[in-house]
Simulated scan of single mutants.
Amino acid sequence: MRYDFDKQIIRTNTGSVKWDHSEAIFGDKDILPMWVADMDFRAPQPVIDALKDKAEHGIFGYTKGMGSYHEAIIGWMQKRHNWSIQGEWICHSPGVVPALNVIVQTFTEPGDKIVIQHPVYHPFTKVIEMNGRTVVSNPLKEEDGRYVMDYHDLEEKIDDQVKLMILCSPHNPVGRVWTREELVQLGDICLKHNILMVSDEVHADLILEGEHLTFASISEDFAQNSIICTAPSKTFNLAGLQTSNIIIPNEHKRGKFQKALEANFMGSMNTFGVAATESAYRYGEEWLDQLLEYIKGNYDFLKSYLEEHVPGIDVFPLEGTYLAWIDCRKLGLDYTALEELIHKQARVAFNQGYIFGSGGEGFIRMNIACPRSILEEGLQRIERVMNSL
Rank of each mutant, 00 (worst) to 15 (best):
D300K: 13
F222V: 01
V184P: 08
Y305H: 04
E181N: 05
S169H: 15
K234P: 04
D53Y: 01
Q258C: 12
D188C: 02
I25E: 12
G320E: 09
Y151I: 08
K141L: 15
E71P: 12
R42N: 12
E251I: 14
I73S: 05
K126D: 04
N298V: 02
K29L: 15
V162C: 06
H203Q: 07
L186S: 08
G273Q: 13
K64A: 13
D112T: 10
A324M: 02
H152P: 03
G27L: 10
N172M: 14
S233E: 03
P311G: 04
L32G: 02
E71C: 12
Q117K: 09
V102L: 13
I227L: 02
Y283D: 07
V47L: 02
Y335W: 10
E307S: 05
A369S: 09
A280P: 00
D334K: 02
D314L: 14
G58P: 00
H252W: 04
T134R: 07
I48V: 14
S219G: 06
T108D: 13
L379D: 14
Y299E: 06
E143N: 10
S244L: 09
I166F: 14
D160R: 08
I355N: 09
L288T: 01
E211H: 15
E209M: 00
G145W: 02
C370W: 00
N387A: 14
S16E: 01
R384N: 15
E155H: 06
V102G: 00
Q78P: 07
F41H: 09
Q161L: 15
Y283G: 00
I9Q: 07
R180N: 05
I326N: 04
H70K: 10
E143K: 08
S68E: 15
G27S: 04
Y299D: 05
S199W: 12
N82P: 07
C328N: 01
S93M: 15
E155N: 07
Y281A: 04
R347K: 13
T14S: 11
E251H: 13
Y305D: 04
K303W: 01
D300V: 13
S137F: 09
Y299Q: 06
Q161G: 08
A346P: 00
R329E: 01
Q258Y: 12
R11N: 07
G65I: 11
N367R: 11
G312T: 11
N351R: 15
K64N: 12
N101R: 07
A275M: 03
A223G: 08
A216R: 02
I114T: 01
G353E: 07
M266L: 15
G175Y: 12
F257W: 06
Q45P: 13
T14F: 05
I195K: 00
G353R: 08
L333R: 00
H343G: 03
T108M: 04
V162M: 08
L379Y: 04
L196C: 12
H171D: 11
L331M: 05
I382P: 05
K256Y: 01
G58V: 00
Q258K: 11
R381P: 07
A349G: 10
K344I: 10
A43E: 14
I74R: 05
G353F: 11
